[in-house]
Design a protein around this nucleic acid. Structure first.
Lengths: 145, 145
DNA sequence: CAATAAGATAGGAATAATTCCTAACTAGGA
DNA sequence: TCCTAGTTAGGAATTATTCCTATCTTATTG
């Protein structure tokens, strides 16, 4: 079951709780529980359709965008051109290690906060909103050597 | 004129110097001189066609990919979905500050090398190849307040 | 300096990812 | 229960990139 905190939050920020949205949230939550591998819209749609066969890809994209704006989902953009999404775990923050061959993602606990702080101080005319830090390479299964 | 170092390098690594490639390189070079704002393939094609009207978009993409593989071009992927490219300046390394509204890019001299080092040491099974670090926000012209 | 083979090109078709459009539906407040 | 602003399905449209293939060219070799 989806933790009520997410539903409560969505309610609070004025997002209607349709069955589609709840199921998408459920899928993201299960993903997070199962290791946190980010998902793309296509995969979310497949999972959601297991229970709501009619759900359209457009709805998935719209919902993921809404969730991202409301701060409960992170939209990730790696070099492979497709967007992936992950549920935001309350107050948690991390970055990613991505395999260039198989696309597998691992989380990195570190964040270059010091640099962001320095940039904020040196570029006062720029209003920083977010940042992304990703390390690419080859995982144990994909590296050749 | 394109600095010979690039041509020499391409020659050395076995890349044929066709007129198209030289013109694409020229366009990237002029861009770097004019402030270093990264370009997408479409823009490169437009510039190249001013002198070589027949050049196809496919050639531009292929050439940019080749240059990237050979290390003289950086392929950037921001949140706006389109790839942008910039000429690599000998031994120089930087990251980016990107406006979420107008897309304007500024360079950041700092790099989270310490974190990369730590990740390299803690994830020895992962072979690190590259990394990207981007800060998003609103530039002076696009911020509201 | 000409022959030639490996590699490159143009142009258009194909693919992939995402967004738009619109008529029909529904959550949730009154 | 009613009503309306917000949401949805489904398919069309758009955008970015890659593929295909017949033709051409670079750069090596004789």
């Amino acid at each position: 079951m989806i933790p009520g905190e997410y539903l409560k939050h969505l309610k609070r920020v004025g997002v209607r709780l349709t069955p589609q949205r709840q199921e998408i949230l459920q899928v993201l939550w299960e993903r997070a529980q199962a290791g946190g591998q980010p998902v793309n819209a296509e995969e979310v749609m497949k999972r959601v359709r297991e229970r709501y066969p009619g759900v359209s890809l457009d709805t998935v994209y719209r919902t993921l965008a809404t969730f991202t704006r409301k701060g409960i989902v992170n939209e990730l953009q790696f070099k492979d051109q497709s967007r992936r999404y992950e549920l935001v775990i309350q107050g948690e923050h991390h970055h990613h290690l991505v395999c260039l061959r198989c696309g597998f993602v691992r989380e990195i606990a570190y964040c270059p906060e010091d640099i962001i702080k320095r940039v904020r101080e040196s570029h006062t005319d720029f209003k920083i909103e977010e940042h992304s830090f990703t390390i690419y390479g080859y995982c144990a299964e994909c590296r050749e050597d």
